[in-house]
Computed example of a mutant assay.
Amino acid sequence: MKGMSGMAGMDKKAPAAKTGQGVGVITAIDAKANKLTIQHGPIPAVGWPAMTVAFKANPPTLLRGLRVGQRIGFDVKTQGMAAEVTAVRPQ
C-alpha cells in the first residue's frame, strides 16, 4: 500500500516469556527498588549460564524475611531482557 513502506518490521511480536528454576546466593536486597540480586548457577530452561543478576521481585512481598548471604531456590520468568523472580525457597 502507498505510504506503508516505513512500516516494515512493525509486525514483530515480543519474545515469548520463559520460566525456569535456579539455585543461588543472595548478594544484595534493595527493598526500595524491589530488586533481589542473586549469584546463581546455570538455568537451562531460560538459556542462562551461571551469573549474578539483579531481578525484580514479583510480588514485592517475596523480599520479606530474606537476607544477604542466604542460599535460595527460586523461580524466574524472563521476557526479552526483563527478568523477575516469582517465588523463593530458602535452602
Rank of each mutant, 00 (worst) to 15 (best):
K2P: 01
G3K: 05
G3W: 04
M4Q: 12
G6N: 14
G6I: 10
M7Q: 11
M7A: 11
A8P: 00
G9W: 11
G9F: 09
M10R: 13
M10I: 12
D11H: 08
K12P: 03
A16R: 13
A16M: 14
A17F: 05
A17G: 03
A17C: 02
K18Q: 15
K18Y: 09
T19V: 11
G20E: 09
Q21T: 13
G22K: 04
G22Q: 05
G22E: 05
V23T: 14
V23H: 14
V25N: 02
V25C: 02
V25L: 02
T27V: 12
A28R: 15
I29K: 05
D30Q: 08
D30Y: 06
D30K: 05
A31I: 06
A31D: 12
K32A: 13
K32Q: 10
A33Q: 11
N34D: 03
K35E: 08
L36Y: 02
L36Q: 03
T37Q: 10
I38K: 00
P44V: 11
P44L: 13
A45E: 15
V46Q: 01
G47N: 08
A50I: 07
M51L: 10
V53I: 15
A54V: 07
K56W: 08
K56C: 03
A57M: 05
P60A: 12
T61C: 03
L62E: 02
L62R: 01
L63P: 02
G65H: 06
L66C: 01
V68S: 05
V68W: 08
G69F: 07
Q70H: 06
G73N: 08
F74C: 04
F74S: 03
F74R: 02
D75E: 15
V76N: 00
V76E: 01
V76D: 00
T78W: 04
Q79G: 08
G80C: 04
A82R: 10
A82L: 12
A83L: 08
E84S: 12
E84K: 11
E84Q: 15
T86P: 01
A87Y: 07
A87W: 09
A87I: 06
V88T: 10
R89A: 10
R89H: 13
R89K: 14
Q91E: 15
